[in-house]
């Protein structure tokens, strides 16, 4: 393989594989949203698009040897912590024992909980709207709907 390409892959793809995949998923979703003819397909695309962004955010919060962002009292820090507790709950010491590299960054997770909720809300509402569309037009294909609108409408 060409060394430049190999170098590129080594530096930009391998350590950032998550980011590459998220972009690809996002592109798939976006493409479906723009070009798909079926409204439900558009919505599936939309869901994929949104999860891709969530994937991106979650990837931000990952740390190489970080665990879940719940402070564990039974982990490797256990002994130190009991010591800290014995010192009448001294705030400073207690803080020092939490190694922040051991925990994933919680903030993106929080944000993405909200984003998931927003996603499902949007999906639900959009499905309701597409049911209304099906009721009025009898189809969910965009081109057929536009055809039905054409003769009567002055648009």
């Amino acid at each position: 393989m060409d060394p430049i390409i190999a170098n590129f892959i080594e530096e930009n793809i391998v350590p950032k594989f998550n980011y590459w995949i998220y972009v690809i998923l996002m592109m798939i979703g976006l493409y479906a949203m723009i070009t798909k003819n079926n409204l439900i397909k558009k919505l599936i695309g939309m869901a994929i698009f949104q999860t891709a962004i969530i994937l991106f955010y979650v990837s931000i919060g990952v740390k190489e040897d970080g665990g879940i962002p719940i402070i564990s009292h039974h982990g490797p820090d256990h002994h130190q912590e009991t010591e800290a507790h014995s010192e009448a709950g001294s705030e400073n010491l207690k803080h020092n024992i939490i190694d922040k590299d051991k925990y994933a960054n919680p903030l993106p997770h929080v944000l993405m909980l909200t984003a998931i909720v927003v996603g499902v809300s949007t999906l639900g509402l959009a499905l309701a709207i597409s049911q209304r569309i099906h009721k009025s037009f009898g189809t969910l294909e965009e081109d057929e709907i536009l055809n039905k609108l054409r003769p009567g409408g002055h648009d």
Partner: peptide
């Protein structure tokens, strides 16, 4: 990736409710 809360939510929402309401819509439309 360590995002247990997000995973939990996605399991309940994405794989659960989203799919269900999508299927509900598909059954009542086409």
């Amino acid at each position: 990736m360590g995002a247990v809360d997000v995973a939990f939510t996605e399991a309940a929402v994405g794989a659960g409710v989203s799919t269900v309401i999508m299927i509900a819509t598909i059954f009542s439309t086409t």
